[in-house]
Design a protein around this nucleic acid. Structure first.
Lengths: 340, 340
DNA sequence: TAGACTTATCGAATCGTTTCGATAGATTTA
DNA sequence: TAAATCTATCGAAACGATTCGATAAGTCTA
């Protein structure tokens, strides 16, 4: 592998001169500089990243830690990250913190191969992140909150998203709404439930809450609870079911469809997350979406600013983005007909 | 940041002793070794990756270059890669070679931050890859073929996939089949067309080829060509349409549905690729899928072997995986009914 | 107990780049 | 023309870990 030393040797200069010449520094006489650059090019010289990183402070690389690569989620987040970083000289590098893979976190963050990190994986240990931040690496966590100097949070406002979704249901005339929550330890589920309750509390109407059921974010649990709702209240007592995530909402739709209840007309179903399947389900699922692109863009912005500017200008509180209501067929009273 | 020197200092040994002690080397007396390890742990010492990479030959990191992160494709490939690498000590790191982003390729491959690379992006310049391989970095390219020592290809057998799909259509009793190709410069499209032709050539039946139309892989082109097919031949002369990719097949379904032709019953539609939407379309699209997990797993296997074993044991020809026919509703004569 | 081996540790060199202070030589200033 | 100022380049010291060949001890053989 051709090294700077070899380039310098052939150009008849010292490595130090070659080094600054290659950066186009005017301290080197023009013809020397051009000769060095030409020889480097001819030899296909590219500086060794490890050596440079070792010597320099900055690496110009940002680590992005994802749980896996599935879904349009991550792809959108990364688009936002890339757009923000494109002209800033930083390159995002993605590591998968998948099943038991301590590898990427170690290699990228602990072994100091990056200047900063964006972490989108609820399973990455909070204490580990705090320890890393204390070592001086700026971290942006997405969709969770960690209060620690050097760790910045960017997230969607789940409470507000659920609030608006509920308001929409009420405005559309759905009177009696049941809510299916996620597991108890899910802060997202809690926030969504809180938004639902706030919207209901504001309305003057009576009997709008048809019960709060505890699910576990799986399609099966949604399905089971839908049957339970029907048993509990008779199929015409509930106007709408708001599930704390799309998987459960799909389960609910399945259950209703199986007993012949027409979704949209007889009962509305609202999901949360806007997973890809939501738009292909029949009827297409009305749901609430996180602005993933914006979140990625903003996360990248925070990291870049933490590295370039003075960190005191950065927010200490989580940056919260509003969620978007995506209205589809499952909450529309117009008759839904099958087929393409 | 705590360095080896600091650990050594506190343990009262030299950095060299600390270095081997931390690796559990028996050359260091047991109590010294344990003391060093304990101090390193207490100080939160993690070796600096750049320094280690610089000194060592291997980095234990494999670069994975993807075009973007969308779709279940990449996610499946990466699952395969991770499973293969999990116990081998290598960590895959993903770079996006997205729009004009020369960054990831430079940072990972050129600047020698990885031991090997898996490239799944048709747009990464072939010459650039050859140059990198000549510098000694083993590369596995997916879904394309580059003949060069040090570059290994893993791909699906598109010709065979199309052959089987066509055979299936013939077996199901579809007599008159039209084919919609992709753009002329697509080798995939060519291979798929070749498989289609080979299957037709083998059959004794007459008039089975209802024409070959030139599309451009977009849904719109599929739609337009479907109308053209109907104009050309009358809507009952064509039994089936085989599009060289799913997008076009969806366009074809749309066109037929718009004029009231019942897909599956009056005309079968076959796609290629099994993009995610295929299974959610109504009717769900019969298509041909690449075994992405296997491809990823095998790519990782090749890279690991290139780095660990003797390279002469590796295949010089592209490793080709059979494609899988995914039968869904769009080629089934049973009456399709809308609804969930 | 001198010589041969082991054992435990260390010092110095190395990986490839960058950076800082030094040094000639050329040029300007007083 | 001696002193001051540039200009172009170089040498050496980092960065942090690894590695190899010393080097002291301590243990064993004859």
């Amino acid at each position: 592998m051709v090294s700077l030393r070899e380039v310098a040797l052939r150009a008849g200069v010292s490595p130090s001169t070659a080094s600054i010449a290659l950066r186009g520094d005017k301290r080197v006489k023009t013809d020397t500089r051009e000769r060095v650059i030409e020889i480097a090019h001819a030899l296909g010289y590219v500086p060794n990243g490890s050596a440079r990183d070792l010597k320099r402070k900055s690496k110009q690389i940002i680590g992005v830690l994802l749980h896996d690569l599935g879904g349009p989620f991550y792809s959108e987040v990364l688009r936002g990250i890339q757009h923000r970083m494109h002209d800033s000289g930083f390159t995002p590098i993605v590591g998968c913190s998948a099943p038991g893979n301590h590898g990427a976190l170690t290699r990228l963050l602990l072994e100091q191969r990056v200047d900063g990190a964006i972490v989108l994986d609820p399973l990455v240990d909070k204490e580990a992140l705090i320890r890393i931040a204390r070592r001086g690496l700026p971290i942006v966590v997405l969709d969770r909150e960690i209060s620690e100097s050097g760790i910045y949070s960017v997230m969607a406002n789940h409470e507000q998203g659920a609030y608006h979704a509920t308001q929409y249901l009420l405005e559309e005339g759905f009177r009696s709404i049941a809510f299916i929550s996620g597991p108890d330890d899910s802060t997202h589920s809690k926030a969504r439930l809180a938004g639902f309750c706030r919207a209901l509390a504001q309305t003057r109407q009576r009997g709008v809450c048809a019960g709060i059921y505890a699910g576990n974010f799986t399609e099966d649990s949604g399905c089971e609870i839908a049957y339970q709702i029907m048993r509990d209240q008779g199929r015409h007592r509930v106007d709408a079911v708001f599930a704390a995530n799309d998987e459960m909402a799909l389960g609910v739709m399945k259950a209703f469809a199986d007993v012949g209840v027409v979704i949209g007309q007889e009962v509305a179903v609202m999901g949360f997350d806007d997973i890809l399947i939501a738009q292909y389900a029949r009827p297409a699922l009305t749901t609430v979406r996180q602005p993933m692109y914006d979140i990625g863009y903003h996360a990248a912005d925070l990291i870049c600013r933490a590295l370039v500017q003075d960190r005191s200008s950065l927010p200490t509180e989580a940056v919260v983005f509003p969620m978007q209501l995506v209205v589809r067929e499952s909450t529309k009273k117009t008759t839904f007909e099958g087929g393409i």
